[in-house]
Structure formats: C-alpha cells, structure tokens
C-alpha cells in the first residue's frame, strides 16, 4: 500500500497509528469517565460503521475505536461533532469551537476518575463533577497533562501515577458528646488507615492530626455519629508520578488540605507554566518532564502564582522523588544533552 499520511497531525486529531498500515484508533474524551448511557449508541455506530466492530475502554477512560481507515477519518470526525459539542461544551462548559474536523488537539489527556461519592461508600467527593470543572482549564490546549482524580485516599484511580493526582479528603470533626468510647474508629483507622486514633483513659478518642490522611473511615465506623465530615471537601494533590520507559516514579504530596478553589486555580496555571518551560512552543512532551526541567522550586513559584491558599492548605517545600533507576546515573551526561527550561533569551 502506498500511503502519504501525516501521522503526527492525525495524532493531534486524536487518531493514533495502528500497526496495520492505513488504520487508526480514534480516542474520544470522556472527562471523569462518566457520560450518559445514551452515548453508547454513538459508540456502537462508530465501531460498526467505520471501526472493526469493537471498542476499547482506554487506560485513561477514553472511548477507543480501532480499525478506522484513513480515508474514513473525515466521515468519523463529522459524525463525532455532536458528541464533542455535547460533552465538551454541554457537560463541561469548555466553550470551544466545534467543527467537522474532530478534536482540535490531543494535548491534555482525558481526565480520569473513579466513581467517587456518586456511588462509592468510601468516596469523599464527586469525582466526575470535579473533572468537568477542570476540563475547561486544560482543554483544548496542546500542552500535555495527565490528571487522575480519586474519591478518597484509597486511591483506586492511581493519583500517585500521573502528573496531577487529586485525592478527595475530608476534615473530620469529633463530637465527644456523642462518643460512646467503643473504639470502633480506633480499630478502623488502625486496620484501614494510618493508626492516628487512640482511646484515652477517659474513654475519649485522641487523634494525631498530623498523620491523618482524611479518609473518613472513622466516620463510617462510628455507630453514633461522633465523627462527621466538614461540609466542604478538601483535596490532596499528588505531583509528578508517572510510568514510562525512562524514569517511572510514584508522585509525592504537593498540596495537602487544599480547597476546591485552590485546586482549580493551581491547574488553571498549568498552561502558563508549560508555555514558560517550553518557551511558548508546545511540542509532544509529557507534563512530568516539564516539572523536571523547571525544577520543583520554579514549578512551585509559577504554579502558585496568584493562587490564594485556603488557611488549612499545606504546600511541599521540597519534593524528592524516588525514580526507578533502570540505568544508574541516568541523569549524568554531557552538558550538551541537558534540557533547557524557560524562554531561550531569558
């Protein structure tokens, strides 16, 4: 077969090259992994009309269709116009231009989320509603970022393995007048969390607030309602986790006890930060590497620019990631191979 295809352009259009020449996989965004079931008829139509009849739930909760022929891409893009408009503009209030050319960029990856407190008894937050608030801040933008949202510190959605992992937490109030001193919370915390509770000699529970992860297992365990979540949700933001061939690593805590406003303001600065690091020239580079290039302290300065932290919010002064060292002294190399961050004239 004789193809003349700009595969980079197609990748930006959310069509990924197949090992079969001339075939592509469409990745449709699904922010927070939650859409109305009615869109499954779109899924079926795309798969059966242009794809190979199957569809794959992407590792980032995108809706993926394999076996799409290069020549069918214009027809597919025209068909998904409604889906893009309804999800991005209708559900997520992105306010983007939607035409018959499909997704304008792959840029920021689909925001993933566990089911959160829409269903889960452990969830502290509504995960996909947060995803829908974040979507307009990062999309459509050519700058790459991976955001995973987990409803609670159990982190089923692996907030520790992406650029920005957002974990829903709760500040817990103790009502001693409702405490029967049964110790159910103490056992729950020891069994399922960080062992921060202890029954004292007066039959009251004492807490080491420093090590509390905000999971609210104590609230679930209490038979009398002596522990309750504060009404407003809090978030822990885990930074710089990633997989990959070079330097996979688990993310570390960047913010603890951040309010929703703070989380949104920080992510709102991502575009500005990325642009600065890459000298305003977006290229295909994973977000985590941008943090590496700038260094954590520069990242912190730019990402917190203009952000008014809520009083409870704690910020990591430094972060020392621990990378898997496939190759020892991976970072020790000739100066000419070092990456540059920031404007080239600056």
């Amino acid at each position: 077969m004789n193809h003349d295809i700009n595969i980079k352009k197609l990748r930006i259009n959310c069509f990924r090259q197949s090992k079969v020449p001339g075939e592509f996989m469409l990745q449709m965004r699904c922010p927070g992994g939650m859409i109305d079931a009615k869109y499954l008829s779109f899924v079926q139509h795309i798969a059966e009309t242009w794809g190979d009849g199957s569809f794959h739930i992407g590792t980032r909760q995108s809706l993926d269709f394999c076996g799409i022929k290069y020549e069918d891409i214009p027809a597919v893009n025209a068909y998904i116009r409604t889906y893009i408009d309804e999800i991005e503009n209708g559900v997520c209030q992105v306010g983007m231009e939607v035409d018959e050319h499909g997704y304008p960029t792959i840029g920021a990856r689909n925001i993933t989320a566990c089911i959160g407190n829409h269903h889960c008894i452990c969830g502290n937050i509504n995960t996909f509603e947060l995803a829908r608030k974040i979507e307009p801040l990062i999309f459509p933008s050519h700058y790459h970022i991976k955001i995973n949202i987990a409803g609670c510190p159990n982190d089923c959605n692996k907030a520790h393995l992406c650029d920005f992992g957002i974990i829903g937490t709760a500040k817990i109030d103790y009502h001693p007048e409702r405490c029967i001193g049964c110790g159910a919370c103490v056992r729950a915390c020891e069994h399922g969390a960080t062992r921060v509770l202890e029954l004292n000699a007066d039959g009251r529970v004492e807490k080491d607030p420093c090590c509390c992860v905000g999971c609210a297992e104590c609230v679930k365990a209490c038979p009398a309602g002596a522990w309750t979540r504060r009404p407003e949700p809090f978030y822990r933001v885990i930074l710089g986790g990633r997989t990959g061939r070079q330097t996979p690593r688990t993310g570390k805590v960047f913010l603890n006890w951040a309010s929703e406003e703070v989380v949104l303001a920080v992510i709102g600065n991502w575009h500005k930060f990325s642009a600065w690091v890459m000298d305003y020239k977006p290229e295909y580079l994973h977000g985590g590497h941008l943090i590496d290039r700038a260094g954590y302290k520069k990242f912190k300065e730019l990402i917190l620019d203009g952000v008014e932290l809520n009083p409870e919010c704690l910020v990591a002064e430094d972060i020392y990631w621990h990378e898997t060292e496939y190759r020892s002294n991976f970072n020790v190399k000739p100066m000419r191979m070092h990456h540059h961050a920031g404007p080239s004239n600056g």
Binding site: N117, G225, T228, R229
Partner: peptide, 14 residues
C-alpha cells in the same frame, strides 16, 4: 445536619 451522614454528601437527622 447537612453532610453529617455516614457517607459523604449525605445528611443526618437527629
């Protein structure tokens, strides 16, 4: 008591 239920975003009545 808004949002003081056993699960998040649930109320308790007492």
């Amino acid at each position: 008591f808004p949002k003081q239920g056993r699960f998040s975003d649930t109320d308790i009545i007492r």
